[in-house]
Amino acid sequence: MPQHEHMERHRKLHGRRFDAEERERKRDARMVHKRSEFAQKVHGIRAKLYNQRRFKEKATMRKTIAQHNERSNKHANDDAVADGAVPAYLLDREGVSRAKVLSNTVKQKRKEKAGKWEVPIPKVKPVADDEMFKVQRTGSKKNKAWKRVVTKCTFVGDNFTRKAPKYERFIRPSGLRMKRANVTHPELKTSFQLDILGVKKNPSSSLYTNLGVLTKGTIIEVNVSDLGLVTTSGRVAWGKMAQVTNNPELDGCVNAVLLV
């Protein structure tokens, strides 16, 4: 046992070794391993005593840490009122979805009038004609090149019949025709497979809109009657807009997000 503060005195008189801090750091770093080694090795009454002591040390440590963190801790605000108030008759009812499933057709109509959409994918890469169409050579010598085959997915209505070959300028291959889309409701965070009702706007060209081409960013109308969405006048909404979020021709399916 040191009788005086002779270590401190020596340090004051002669200074410390140059690598003192480094050695200290290393010793500390080694300490945990040493402890662990001992804790694993020890058994019997020594182990019991050691664990008791260590438990107390750790408890003190936790308390100290909590005290230090006191200021920065987040406290539950007792006066805050929780969101999502429901009447007493709906409280504690299982199976009742409280998610908001309301449309605002008024807003939607206003947007439609302005011709502008605030959409999840505002900018899309325009698709050029030569990417969209493949030239189909016709005639017995295959020297005519006025026919085009659409290379992207399309939506074709139920009552569509092909024109006579002589007049059919654009061919929409039946293998690339889509009838249903996987539509995600952004607020409900769920997706549904819904029937496509029509293509409202293809951002690349109005020609593509008329042809019903489904590319990334296209606005389509989907049948939402199964979702039970209600308009403000209390009627069941059945057609709603959605925007295509994937490249259907690469994925083989149409994924879309509902515009609410």
């Binding site: 429901v86 009447p87 908001k100 309301l102 605002n104 403000t232 006048s233 209390g234």
Partner: peptide
């Protein structure tokens, strides 16, 4: 009569 106008569920 239907009394429309609310934008969400009518609770009370």
């Amino acid at each position: 009569e239907t009394l429309p106008g609310h934008a969400d569920e009518v609770y009370a």
